[in-house]
Each structure stands twice: as C-alpha cells, then as structure tokens.
C-alpha cells in the first residue's frame, strides 16, 4: 500500500479566500415576468379585491381553486367563475424550523394546504398559518384568511397575510 500514499496538504477556507485554489464564479441574471393570462389574471384580481375565486368544470362538476380555464381531469374548458368563502379546513401542514435561507428558528413557520369552503373536496390553496399555537394545529382545523388592508393589496397570493383558526 505504501506506494499509494502521497504527501498531502489540507485545504482550508482561507486557501479559497486567498485565491490559492482557483475556481470560477457566475451570478445568473435571470429575470421573468410571466403572463397571468385569463385564469390567473382573474384570480389575482379577486385577491386584490379581497375575494377568493374558483372555476367550475361542467363535466365532473368540480369547483377548482386556484381557477383554471380547463379541467386537468376531464380535459375540457371550465365554464364559469365561482365566488368562494375565505374559510376552510386544513388538508395538511408542517411546522418548519429552518427558514428557506437555512437559518434555524425556534418559532416555526407553518405552511398549510387549506381546503376552501365552496370548492370541491381536495381543492385547496397553499398558505401560511399564524395567530395559532403551533402545537394546536391539526388536520381538519377550521381556519379563515386574514387579509391585508385593501390599500396594501397588489393582486398577489400575499394579499392574504395568513390564515388563523376560526
């Protein structure tokens, strides 16, 4: 084995920082502005007005939220807008103790899928829970949207600040 053992040096952070190890870096300049189109456009307009809106499929009779101009199950055009409640029940959730930039936190963020009242079973929207004891959150819990003040709404999913228990 001896002939396979070579003199070696350990690489340390400062070897990278001082340029002793050569590498290339690049920051992508990737910016987009996606066309909302009909369905998302109407949905965002609704959010700005403080209203959740779904779309009805005449084939399977489901009410879909977020709305779409076609039903992915039936592959046919949806036929009408449906105004929905801003209340619902939790389908599933998680208590997250690491932020998306990898910082450990003690008070968890709680994303949840909320089945919206008036939409079909299993049709929910993804949002955050607040004003709730993290340990109390459970599947089936009834919640309601807490909207930002009208002047602060811009037509975005964040026009709802969060959901809280009913």
């Amino acid at each position: 084995m001896k002939e396979y053992v070579y003199d070696s040096v350990y690489l340390r952070s400062k070897d990278f920082e001082e340029g002793n190890v050569l590498f290339e870096t690049w920051d992508p300049n990737a910016r987009y502005a996606w066309d909302a189109g009909v369905a998302i456009g109407r949905y965002l307009q609704g959010l700005k007005a403080g209203q959740l809106i779904g779309r009805h499929c005449p084939e399977c009779d489901r009410v879909l939220i977020p709305p779409r101009m076609f039903c992915e199950t039936c592959f046919r055009p949806t036929d009408r807008w449906v105004e929905l409640e801003d209340t619902g029940a939790i389908i599933t959730f998680s208590r997250c103790y690491v932020t998306w930039d990898m910082i450990r936190i003690t008070d968890p963020q709680i994303p949840a899928v909320i089945e919206i009242d008036g939409a079909s079973p299993g049709m929910g929207i993804m949002h955050m829970l607040s004003e709730v004891d993290p340990d109390e959150v459970q599947i089936g819990m009834r919640v309601q949207a807490v909207w930002k003040p009208a002047a602060e709404r811009i037509g975005a999913i964040t026009d709802i600040a969060y959901f809280k228990p009913l």
């Binding site: 996606w34 189109g37 369905a39 998302i40």
Partner: peptide
C-alpha cells in the same frame, strides 16, 4: 399577455 403559458399550450 392574454394567455398564460398553460392556456397557450391548451
């Protein structure tokens, strides 16, 4: 701008 990419594809 009248169509999302999904609506364009549909």
């Amino acid at each position: 701008p009248d169509l999302s990419y999904k609506e364009l594809m549909y």
